[in-house]
């Protein structure tokens, strides 16, 4: 008599058994015993009952993840906007550069007001740029690692951000803001690294990119400098 295989017994446990298999199980003591042993193990696994949870336990779960989950949702819903935003930011930066050129030719009475406007435009443009850069860095840093990792969306955005970053860095340097220029140079190196990476990277390549971001604390700096710039720009 041909006994049921281990695979057939497993399927029988989950209720997936042929009529022939069922008939065999009814008449064969060996297979019946095998199935009982298997059922004993799997039932024991299922019998593990989790401890009772407090009545409003799920509210605590929400409180502990609220800010991070909201950021995750915003990032996704913001995507269509930030795909278009680099072009808009470029216009703002160009307008700022043009403003500087015009302002040099204006009289000194209007100088103070123009300088104020210029600083505001620059700060807001910088804030916007860093907000989008932060998205790229965060996506890379939080990407789950697997053998192959598709980073094409981040790579495309990084490519667009590199040019904008360069322009902002040069403007900051010309304006004598060495700190911002140095930070933007640091950010540019990582954006270039991401932009030049292939669409799909291996686990070790992904870890290298993560390392570049983490070793310089770049994500944190981008977040802080970006939000400071925006806030300061809005006040002006």
């Amino acid at each position: 008599m041909k006994h049921l295989s281990e695979q057939e017994l497993t399927q029988a446990y989950f209720g997936d058994v042929t009529a022939e298999g069922r008939r065999h199980l009814e008449s064969c003591a060996v297979c019946k015993r095998e199935l009982q042993t298997l059922a004993g193990t799997l039932d024991a696994l299922k019998a593990i009952e989790p401890p009772e949870l407090a009545p409003h336990w799920e509210e605590g779960v929400w409180r502990s993840i609220e800010s991070r989950a909201s950021a995750g949702l915003q990032r996704r819903s913001a995507r269509p906007w930030w795909m278009l935003a680099p072009a808009l930011a470029m216009v703002v930066v160009l307008a700022f550069a043009a403003g500087m050129w015009v302002e040099r030719r204006s009289d000194s009475g209007r100088g103070a007001m123009a300088a104020n406007t210029r600083e505001r435009v620059l700060l807001i443009a910088l804030g916007d740029h860093l907000e989008r850069s932060q998205i790229v860095l965060a996506e890379i840093e939080n990407a789950p690692e697997s053998k192959t990792n598709d980073i094409s969306a981040e790579q495309q955005l990084a490519s667009r951000l590199v040019g904008e970053n360069r322009l902002l860095r040069l403007t900051a340097a010309r304006a004598g803001d060495g700190t911002s220029a140095a930070f933007l140079a640091q950010l540019e190196r990582v954006l270039v690294e991401i932009a030049h990476a292939p669409d799909s990277v291996s686990e070790s390549e992904l870890n290298e990119l993560k390392g570049s971001i983490e070793s310089q604390g770049l994500l944190f700096k981008t977040r802080v400098i970006g939000s400071n710039a925006k806030e300061k720009g809005m006040k002006l």
Partner: peptide, 29 residues
């Protein structure tokens, strides 16, 4: 939630977190 509204996602957390907990507890003990 897809529109970026955290309140939508909160509803999902409230409705599914206990079932997820039962599962993760059984997997990790």
């Amino acid at each position: 939630a897809r529109r970026g509204n955290p309140d939508g996602f909160r509803v999902l957390v409230e409705r599914h977190s206990r079932a997820v907990y039962r599962l993760t507890y059984r997997m990790t003990g």
